[in-house]
Design a binder for these strands. Structure first.
Length: 290
DNA sequence: TCCCAGGATACTC
DNA sequence: GAGTATCCTGGG
Protein backbone atom coordinates (compact mmCIF):
# COMPACT_ATOMS: atom_id res chain seq x y z
CA UNK A 1 0.00 0.00 0.00
CA UNK A 2 1.38 3.38 -0.99
CA UNK A 3 -0.06 6.61 0.31
CA UNK A 4 0.50 9.99 -1.32
CA UNK A 5 -0.70 13.52 -0.74
CA UNK A 6 -1.75 14.76 -4.18
CA UNK A 7 -3.18 18.11 -5.20
CA UNK A 8 -5.54 18.52 -8.12
CA UNK A 9 -6.52 14.87 -8.12
CA UNK A 10 -10.00 13.39 -7.88
CA UNK A 11 -10.73 9.76 -8.67
CA UNK A 12 -14.42 10.26 -9.34
CA UNK A 13 -13.75 13.10 -11.75
CA UNK A 14 -11.13 11.04 -13.58
CA UNK A 15 -13.47 8.05 -13.79
CA UNK A 16 -16.22 10.19 -15.28
CA UNK A 17 -14.08 12.29 -17.59
CA UNK A 18 -14.67 10.01 -20.56
CA UNK A 19 -11.05 9.14 -21.25
CA UNK A 20 -10.95 5.71 -19.61
CA UNK A 21 -13.62 3.03 -19.76
CA UNK A 22 -12.25 0.38 -17.43
CA UNK A 23 -12.20 2.42 -14.23
CA UNK A 24 -15.10 1.48 -12.00
CA UNK A 25 -16.15 2.24 -8.48
CA UNK A 26 -15.94 -0.84 -6.27
CA UNK A 27 -19.45 -1.25 -4.88
CA UNK A 28 -19.86 -0.43 -1.21
CA UNK A 29 -16.48 1.29 -0.96
CA UNK A 30 -15.01 4.63 -1.92
CA UNK A 31 -12.37 2.82 -3.93
CA UNK A 32 -11.94 2.34 -7.67
CA UNK A 33 -10.60 -0.52 -9.72
CA UNK A 34 -8.66 0.39 -12.83
CA UNK A 35 -7.51 -1.98 -15.52
CA UNK A 36 -4.96 -0.68 -17.98
CA UNK A 37 -3.53 -3.05 -20.54
CA UNK A 38 -2.72 -6.15 -18.49
CA UNK A 39 -2.40 -4.34 -15.14
CA UNK A 40 -4.95 -3.74 -12.45
CA UNK A 41 -4.96 -1.31 -9.54
CA UNK A 42 -7.24 -0.61 -6.63
CA UNK A 43 -7.04 2.95 -5.47
CA UNK A 44 -8.92 4.99 -2.88
CA UNK A 45 -8.98 8.61 -1.85
CA UNK A 46 -9.76 10.54 1.30
CA UNK A 47 -9.46 14.25 0.70
CA UNK A 48 -6.00 14.94 -0.66
CA UNK A 49 -4.66 11.57 0.45
CA UNK A 50 -4.60 8.85 -2.17
CA UNK A 51 -4.03 5.18 -1.35
CA UNK A 52 -2.58 2.98 -4.07
CA UNK A 53 -3.03 -0.73 -3.40
CA UNK A 54 0.27 -1.79 -4.94
CA UNK A 55 3.92 -2.22 -4.02
CA UNK A 56 6.93 -0.04 -4.75
CA UNK A 57 7.73 -1.93 -7.94
CA UNK A 58 4.33 -1.34 -9.49
CA UNK A 59 3.90 2.25 -8.38
CA UNK A 60 6.00 3.99 -11.08
CA UNK A 61 3.62 2.67 -13.74
CA UNK A 62 0.62 4.24 -12.00
CA UNK A 63 2.51 7.39 -11.19
CA UNK A 64 3.02 7.76 -14.93
CA UNK A 65 -0.52 6.65 -15.68
CA UNK A 66 -2.05 9.38 -13.51
CA UNK A 67 0.52 11.97 -14.64
CA UNK A 68 1.35 12.68 -11.01
CA UNK A 69 4.54 14.58 -11.71
CA UNK A 70 2.71 17.32 -13.56
CA UNK A 71 1.46 20.44 -11.78
CA UNK A 72 -2.16 20.84 -12.84
CA UNK A 73 -2.44 23.92 -10.63
CA UNK A 74 -0.14 25.67 -13.09
CA UNK A 75 -2.45 24.74 -15.96
CA UNK A 76 -5.46 26.10 -14.12
CA UNK A 77 -3.85 29.33 -13.02
CA UNK A 78 -2.80 30.02 -16.62
CA UNK A 79 -6.43 30.31 -17.71
CA UNK A 80 -7.38 33.61 -19.32
CA UNK A 81 -8.91 35.93 -16.70
CA UNK A 82 -11.56 36.96 -19.21
CA UNK A 83 -12.66 33.41 -19.93
CA UNK A 84 -15.10 32.97 -17.06
CA UNK A 85 -16.63 29.87 -18.57
CA UNK A 86 -13.35 27.95 -18.83
CA UNK A 87 -12.36 29.11 -15.37
CA UNK A 88 -15.62 27.77 -13.93
CA UNK A 89 -15.16 24.50 -15.82
CA UNK A 90 -11.60 24.09 -14.51
CA UNK A 91 -12.64 24.85 -10.94
CA UNK A 92 -15.41 22.32 -11.25
CA UNK A 93 -13.17 19.56 -12.62
CA UNK A 94 -9.88 20.56 -11.02
CA UNK A 95 -9.14 16.96 -10.04
CA UNK A 96 -9.02 15.68 -13.61
CA UNK A 97 -5.79 14.24 -14.96
CA UNK A 98 -4.84 13.44 -18.53
CA UNK A 99 -4.08 9.75 -18.22
CA UNK A 100 -1.18 8.02 -19.96
CA UNK A 101 -2.94 4.94 -21.20
CA UNK A 102 -1.87 2.10 -23.45
CA UNK A 103 -1.83 3.25 -27.07
CA UNK A 104 -3.11 0.01 -28.57
CA UNK A 105 -5.97 -0.05 -26.07
CA UNK A 106 -6.83 3.56 -26.92
CA UNK A 107 -6.90 2.91 -30.65
CA UNK A 108 -9.39 0.07 -30.32
CA UNK A 109 -11.40 1.78 -27.58
CA UNK A 110 -11.91 5.01 -29.51
CA UNK A 111 -12.71 3.23 -32.76
CA UNK A 112 -15.42 1.47 -30.77
CA UNK A 113 -16.58 4.79 -29.30
CA UNK A 114 -17.94 6.10 -32.62
CA UNK A 115 -21.63 6.99 -32.23
CA UNK A 116 -21.80 5.22 -28.89
CA UNK A 117 -22.68 6.37 -25.39
CA UNK A 118 -20.23 5.92 -22.54
CA UNK A 119 -22.07 2.99 -20.87
CA UNK A 120 -22.22 1.33 -24.27
CA UNK A 121 -18.50 1.81 -24.85
CA UNK A 122 -17.74 0.37 -21.43
CA UNK A 123 -19.72 -2.79 -22.03
CA UNK A 124 -18.28 -3.33 -25.51
CA UNK A 125 -14.70 -2.93 -24.23
CA UNK A 126 -15.45 -5.36 -21.39
CA UNK A 127 -16.90 -7.84 -23.86
CA UNK A 128 -13.76 -7.70 -25.99
CA UNK A 129 -11.57 -8.22 -22.92
CA UNK A 130 -13.70 -11.11 -21.69
CA UNK A 131 -13.66 -12.85 -25.07
CA UNK A 132 -10.08 -12.23 -26.18
CA UNK A 133 -8.05 -10.92 -23.22
CA UNK A 134 -6.03 -13.03 -20.81
CA UNK A 135 -7.74 -13.97 -17.60
CA UNK A 136 -5.52 -12.87 -14.73
CA UNK A 137 -5.97 -14.38 -11.29
CA UNK A 138 -5.49 -11.96 -8.42
CA UNK A 139 -6.39 -14.44 -5.70
CA UNK A 140 -8.44 -17.59 -5.33
CA UNK A 141 -11.63 -15.56 -5.46
CA UNK A 142 -10.66 -12.67 -7.66
CA UNK A 143 -9.64 -12.19 -11.28
CA UNK A 144 -9.88 -9.76 -14.16
CA UNK A 145 -9.45 -9.74 -17.91
CA UNK A 146 -6.55 -7.87 -19.47
CA UNK A 147 -7.09 -5.88 -22.62
CA UNK A 148 -6.30 -8.28 -25.49
CA UNK A 149 -2.93 -7.94 -27.19
CA UNK A 150 -3.07 -7.32 -30.96
CA UNK A 151 -2.40 -11.01 -31.72
CA UNK A 152 -5.16 -12.05 -29.33
CA UNK A 153 -7.74 -9.70 -30.80
CA UNK A 154 -6.64 -10.56 -34.31
CA UNK A 155 -7.75 -14.12 -33.62
CA UNK A 156 -11.31 -12.83 -33.74
CA UNK A 157 -13.07 -13.26 -37.06
CA UNK A 158 -15.18 -10.47 -38.50
CA UNK A 159 -18.29 -12.53 -37.80
CA UNK A 160 -17.29 -12.89 -34.14
CA UNK A 161 -16.81 -9.14 -33.79
CA UNK A 162 -20.18 -8.55 -35.40
CA UNK A 163 -21.71 -10.96 -32.89
CA UNK A 164 -20.43 -8.67 -30.11
CA UNK A 165 -22.68 -5.95 -31.58
CA UNK A 166 -19.80 -3.81 -32.80
CA UNK A 167 -21.77 -3.06 -35.95
CA UNK A 168 -19.95 -1.18 -38.70
CA UNK A 169 -16.97 -0.70 -36.35
CA UNK A 170 -16.20 -4.43 -36.56
CA UNK A 171 -14.56 -4.14 -39.97
CA UNK A 172 -12.45 -1.21 -38.75
CA UNK A 173 -11.22 -3.22 -35.77
CA UNK A 174 -10.52 -6.27 -37.90
CA UNK A 175 -8.42 -4.24 -40.32
CA UNK A 176 -6.53 -2.43 -37.57
CA UNK A 177 -5.69 -5.74 -35.87
CA UNK A 178 -4.33 -7.06 -39.14
CA UNK A 179 -2.33 -3.89 -39.73
CA UNK A 180 -0.76 -3.97 -36.27
CA UNK A 181 0.04 -7.67 -36.51
CA UNK A 182 1.60 -7.29 -39.95
CA UNK A 183 3.62 -4.29 -38.82
CA UNK A 184 1.86 -1.91 -41.23
CA UNK A 185 0.74 0.00 -38.16
CA UNK A 186 3.87 0.14 -36.02
CA UNK A 187 3.06 1.12 -32.45
CA UNK A 188 6.70 1.59 -31.50
CA UNK A 189 7.25 4.10 -34.27
CA UNK A 190 3.95 5.78 -33.45
CA UNK A 191 5.08 6.32 -29.86
CA UNK A 192 8.18 8.15 -31.05
CA UNK A 193 6.29 10.59 -33.27
CA UNK A 194 5.40 14.15 -32.34
CA UNK A 195 1.76 15.26 -32.37
CA UNK A 196 1.33 16.29 -36.04
CA UNK A 197 3.22 13.23 -37.27
CA UNK A 198 1.18 10.91 -35.05
CA UNK A 199 -2.07 12.48 -36.27
CA UNK A 200 -1.13 12.07 -39.92
CA UNK A 201 0.02 8.50 -39.33
CA UNK A 202 -3.06 7.42 -37.39
CA UNK A 203 -5.50 8.98 -39.86
CA UNK A 204 -3.98 6.87 -42.61
CA UNK A 205 -5.57 3.73 -41.19
CA UNK A 206 -9.04 2.44 -41.96
CA UNK A 207 -11.59 3.56 -39.37
CA UNK A 208 -9.46 6.26 -37.76
CA UNK A 209 -10.53 9.82 -38.50
CA UNK A 210 -9.73 13.20 -37.01
CA UNK A 211 -11.59 12.74 -33.73
CA UNK A 212 -10.40 9.22 -32.94
CA UNK A 213 -6.81 10.13 -33.85
CA UNK A 214 -6.97 13.10 -31.48
CA UNK A 215 -8.26 10.92 -28.65
CA UNK A 216 -5.45 8.42 -29.20
CA UNK A 217 -2.93 11.26 -29.19
CA UNK A 218 -4.31 12.82 -26.02
CA UNK A 219 -5.08 9.77 -23.89
CA UNK A 220 -2.60 7.24 -25.27
CA UNK A 221 0.41 9.18 -26.50
CA UNK A 222 0.09 12.01 -23.99
CA UNK A 223 0.26 14.69 -26.66
CA UNK A 224 -1.43 17.14 -24.36
CA UNK A 225 -1.83 19.68 -27.16
CA UNK A 226 -4.40 17.44 -28.89
CA UNK A 227 -7.93 18.88 -28.80
CA UNK A 228 -10.56 16.30 -29.81
CA UNK A 229 -13.81 17.87 -31.00
CA UNK A 230 -16.81 15.67 -30.35
CA UNK A 231 -20.45 16.68 -30.29
CA UNK A 232 -20.17 17.96 -26.69
CA UNK A 233 -17.19 20.17 -27.41
CA UNK A 234 -18.88 21.26 -30.62
CA UNK A 235 -21.92 22.36 -28.60
CA UNK A 236 -19.77 24.28 -26.10
CA UNK A 237 -17.77 26.06 -28.79
CA UNK A 238 -20.91 27.17 -30.60
CA UNK A 239 -22.77 28.21 -27.45
CA UNK A 240 -19.99 29.82 -25.38
CA UNK A 241 -17.33 30.90 -27.86
CA UNK A 242 -19.00 31.61 -31.20
CA UNK A 243 -20.73 34.64 -29.69
CA UNK A 244 -17.39 36.15 -28.64
CA UNK A 245 -16.30 36.95 -32.15
CA UNK A 246 -18.03 38.91 -34.92
CA UNK A 247 -20.82 37.00 -36.60
CA UNK A 248 -19.56 37.79 -40.08
CA UNK A 249 -16.13 36.35 -39.28
CA UNK A 250 -17.62 32.98 -38.43
CA UNK A 251 -20.25 32.93 -41.15
CA UNK A 252 -17.61 33.55 -43.76
CA UNK A 253 -16.14 30.17 -42.91
CA UNK A 254 -17.57 26.86 -44.14
CA UNK A 255 -19.53 24.95 -41.52
CA UNK A 256 -16.84 22.33 -41.04
CA UNK A 257 -14.16 24.94 -40.38
CA UNK A 258 -15.88 26.97 -37.68
CA UNK A 259 -14.97 24.83 -34.68
CA UNK A 260 -11.34 24.72 -35.72
CA UNK A 261 -11.31 28.48 -36.01
CA UNK A 262 -12.76 28.94 -32.52
CA UNK A 263 -10.26 26.50 -31.02
CA UNK A 264 -7.41 28.32 -32.72
CA UNK A 265 -8.69 31.69 -31.60
CA UNK A 266 -9.52 30.95 -27.97
CA UNK A 267 -7.30 27.99 -27.07
CA UNK A 268 -4.05 28.47 -28.93
CA UNK A 269 -2.88 30.57 -25.98
CA UNK A 270 -2.63 27.30 -24.04
CA UNK A 271 0.20 26.28 -26.27
CA UNK A 272 1.15 22.63 -25.85
CA UNK A 273 -1.60 21.80 -23.34
CA UNK A 274 -4.95 22.83 -24.84
CA UNK A 275 -6.13 19.24 -24.39
CA UNK A 276 -6.22 19.76 -20.63
CA UNK A 277 -8.67 22.62 -21.18
CA UNK A 278 -10.68 20.41 -23.51
CA UNK A 279 -11.11 17.91 -20.69
CA UNK A 280 -12.30 20.58 -18.24
CA UNK A 281 -14.87 21.76 -20.77
CA UNK A 282 -16.02 18.25 -21.56
CA UNK A 283 -16.41 17.17 -17.95
CA UNK A 284 -18.18 20.37 -16.94
CA UNK A 285 -20.62 20.18 -19.81
CA UNK A 286 -21.54 16.57 -19.18
CA UNK A 287 -21.85 16.99 -15.42
CA UNK A 288 -23.97 20.11 -15.62
CA UNK A 289 -26.07 19.46 -18.71
CA UNK A 290 -25.59 15.79 -19.41
C1' DT B 1 -41.92 4.69 -35.96
C1' DC B 2 -38.40 8.09 -35.79
C1' DC B 3 -34.37 10.09 -33.89
C1' DC B 4 -29.93 10.39 -32.14
C1' DA B 5 -25.64 8.85 -29.59
C1' DG B 6 -18.38 11.44 -27.92
C1' DG B 7 -17.62 9.33 -36.39
C1' DA B 8 -15.61 7.58 -40.72
C1' DT B 9 -15.89 6.42 -45.45
C1' DA B 10 -17.03 6.89 -50.09
C1' DC B 11 -19.00 9.04 -52.85
C1' DT B 12 -20.81 13.65 -55.16
C1' DC B 13 -20.02 18.54 -57.10
C1' DG C 1 -12.09 21.54 -50.64
C1' DA C 2 -17.04 21.14 -49.11
C1' DG C 3 -21.38 18.78 -48.51
C1' DT C 4 -24.04 14.24 -47.96
C1' DA C 5 -25.81 9.26 -47.78
C1' DT C 6 -24.67 5.31 -45.45
C1' DC C 7 -23.20 2.36 -41.85
C1' DC C 8 -24.83 -1.17 -36.89
C1' DT C 9 -26.99 -1.00 -32.50
C1' DG C 10 -29.59 0.46 -28.41
C1' DG C 11 -32.56 3.48 -26.01
C1' DG C 12 -35.85 7.28 -25.51
Amino acid sequence: MIEKEIKYFNLRQIAESGQCFRMTEIPGTAAYRIISGCRMLKVAQRGGRVLFDCDEDAFPYWEEYFDLKTDYGAYISSIDEEDGYLRAAADFGSGIRILKQDVWEMIITFVISQQKTIPNIRSLVEAICREYGSRIEVSAASFYYAFPAPEQLNAAGLDELLALKLGYRAKYIKRICEDVCSGALDLRILKQMNYPAAMAYLKGFYGIGEKVANCVCLFGLHHVEAFPIDTWIHKILMREYACRCRKSTLERLPQARRCGYLVERYFSRYKGYAGVMQQYLFYYERAVRG
